[in-house]
Amino acid sequence: MKKIVIITIFCITIITIILFTVFGLPYIKPVKIPFALKGYEITLEDDYVILNKYVGNDKNVVIPERFLTKPVKVLGDRCFYNSLNGTPWEKEIESVEIPDSVEIIGDRCFAFISSLKSVTATNVISVGEHAFYENRALENVSLGSGLTIIKTKAFSANPHLVSFDFSNVKEIGDEAFAYSGLTNVTNMQSIEKIGARVFAETPWIYAQKGDFVIIYGSLQLYKGEEQIVVIPDGVKSIDGAFCQYSSEYKYPVDVQEIYIPDSVESISSYSFFSQDNVTIYIPDSVTSIEISYGRKWEGYDLSGIGTIVTTAGSYAEQYAKENGIPYEIVDSWEVPDT
């Protein structure tokens, strides 16, 4: 009898520890389960689950909606991305079905899975940086109407991704779809914030008409052939528009002068990549500049700026002084006719 009592107490203790670990401890701090469940390594939060790593071998993955009664809310950073000694290696995943419970896809979650063709979800809100980077077979992505944030390079370098619906998307990060195969872009009316070179080197952006490709106030690309460029009034930000990087396309030409209107408030990095001798006329309306003057990368000058022309006391003057950029102070300038 005494032995039975001891065993019973032991079992009750173990069950209590398990229940506390699953249902109690996550309210104090996240609990990382030290073994795989259903092919995943997971972390328990107070009321949801994070999938940290997929360790299964299914080609057609159906992500479970719940673990230990808690909903799966987050696909963690690098969850399906695998590396050996820092070098990506292949998982033969062809499709992924994401349940209604998942709202967040983490950074590099599906990066470098060259066999991945299709991803479907219904309730994703945010897609992390490089989340689907270089999935060279990826053709179909449907993440639901709740998607609002797409971060830096999330879908970059996917040559077979030709269409994307931006319904309800409010924020798109730098180069989010750069070097992809996009030809069809729809429902962009909800966008409030857009990064630099979002559609760089895509068929879609080169098919746009006119010398200036402007997306909700963001000048993404200059396609003209003039060496003296007057940016249209109404542009709010310059986001990589004069970047010379691709050897495949001739846009933009080597510009000599760029006149920025008073409507512009910010200039993103790489906006003048490899423009070696350009003189830029920057008004005092510009209060944010991210020009990496003097930095080199693979033989390219990351800024290319020859001279900044601006007015005394402007942010452009301060930025030029702090970053060693040649500048000239004037009272005003005359904008040439175009």
Rank of each mutant, 00 (worst) to 15 (best):
residue 87 T to Q: 14
residue 87 T to I: 15
residue 91 K to E: 05
residue 93 I to N: 09
residue 95 S to C: 12
residue 95 S to H: 08
residue 98 I to Y: 05
residue 100 D to A: 15
residue 100 D to Q: 03
residue 101 S to H: 06
residue 103 E to A: 09
residue 104 I to A: 05
residue 104 I to H: 08
residue 105 I to A: 10
residue 106 G to F: 10
residue 108 R to I: 07
residue 109 C to R: 01
residue 112 F to L: 15
residue 115 S to N: 08
residue 115 S to V: 09
residue 118 S to G: 04
residue 121 A to C: 12
residue 123 N to P: 00
residue 124 V to H: 06
residue 124 V to E: 06
residue 125 I to E: 15
residue 125 I to F: 01
residue 128 G to R: 00
residue 129 E to A: 14
residue 129 E to Q: 15
residue 130 H to T: 11
residue 130 H to M: 15
residue 131 A to W: 03
residue 132 F to Q: 13
residue 136 R to K: 15
residue 141 V to L: 12
residue 143 L to E: 02
residue 147 L to R: 02
residue 147 L to T: 01
residue 148 T to I: 07
residue 149 I to G: 02
residue 149 I to P: 07
residue 149 I to M: 08
residue 153 K to Q: 10
residue 155 F to V: 10
residue 155 F to P: 06
residue 156 S to E: 01
residue 156 S to Q: 12
residue 157 A to P: 00
residue 159 P to H: 13
residue 160 H to T: 14
residue 162 V to S: 14
residue 163 S to D: 03
residue 166 F to D: 09
residue 167 S to K: 10
residue 168 N to V: 10
residue 168 N to S: 07
residue 169 V to M: 02
residue 171 E to Y: 15
residue 174 D to R: 06
residue 174 D to L: 02
residue 174 D to F: 03
residue 179 Y to Q: 05
residue 181 G to P: 11
residue 183 T to Q: 04
residue 183 T to R: 14
residue 185 V to Y: 01
residue 185 V to D: 01
residue 186 T to S: 05
residue 186 T to V: 14
residue 186 T to K: 15
residue 187 N to V: 03
residue 188 M to P: 10
residue 192 E to D: 09
residue 195 G to V: 05
residue 196 A to H: 05
residue 199 F to A: 11
residue 199 F to G: 04
residue 205 I to F: 03
residue 210 G to I: 06
residue 210 G to T: 09
residue 210 G to P: 02
residue 211 D to L: 05
residue 211 D to C: 11
residue 215 I to K: 13
residue 218 S to R: 08
residue 220 Q to T: 09
residue 225 E to T: 13
residue 227 Q to P: 09
residue 227 Q to C: 10
